[in-house]
Computed example of a mutant assay.
Amino acid sequence: MTDTQPTDDALREQYAAAIRPTMLIGLQGAELDGRGGTQRINEWADWIATAVAAVRDKEVEALRDALGAVARVRDLHQAWDADPGSCAHCHDSYGTPLPYPCPTALALDPQEQLSARLTEYASKDIANGEPS
């Protein structure tokens, strides 16, 4: 869990804060016995479900926004067709393209990072005349 993700306690409090004010008003002087009470309890349960779903929908929207941002960054950091082996976005202070996968691509894709490390180790073995 990162620093930007709420803890379970923080999420519970967020849900409670969405529900508590209306529940407190709704419970004052409420008759909970018999058919009327059952109907009232069912109405509250429906309202709670709606309130929790609204909070959840905001969380899902935030997650979709974050995943969209990651996808846009990933789209920038692709292998460059015009210069094979280079990142299409990254360059050093002299304007020379950085090798692909660049540090950003590696950070976004652990599988890419593993593949890059294996390739690096294999190339070192070959350069040293050792079998890979």
Rank of each mutant, 00 (worst) to 15 (best):
L63C: 05
V60A: 06
A69K: 09
H91I: 01
G85I: 03
R64D: 15
A88S: 03
D83K: 13
H91K: 09
A66S: 14
L76K: 11
L76I: 02
A79P: 05
W80I: 07
S93Y: 10
A69E: 13
A88Q: 02
W80G: 05
D92S: 07
S86M: 10
D65R: 11
A71I: 08
D81K: 12
A79S: 12
R72K: 13
W80K: 11
D92P: 02
C90M: 03
L63R: 14
V70Q: 15
V60K: 08
A66R: 12
A71S: 14
S86H: 12
L76F: 04
D83W: 06
V70C: 10
W80C: 13
A79Q: 15
R72C: 07
A88E: 00
L63S: 08
C90E: 05
L76Q: 11
D75T: 03
R64A: 15
H89N: 09
R74H: 05
A79H: 11
Q78M: 08
E61R: 08
L76H: 07
W80R: 10
S86G: 05
S93G: 03
D92K: 02
P84L: 00
P84Y: 02
W80Y: 11
L63I: 09
K58C: 02
D83Y: 08
G68A: 03
A88K: 00
S86V: 03
A79M: 12
H89F: 06
A82T: 04
D92Y: 00
C87A: 10
V60N: 04
D83Q: 14
G68V: 06
A62T: 03
R64W: 08
L63D: 13
L76D: 11
R64G: 07
R74D: 13
V73Q: 09
V60H: 08
H77T: 11
C87M: 04
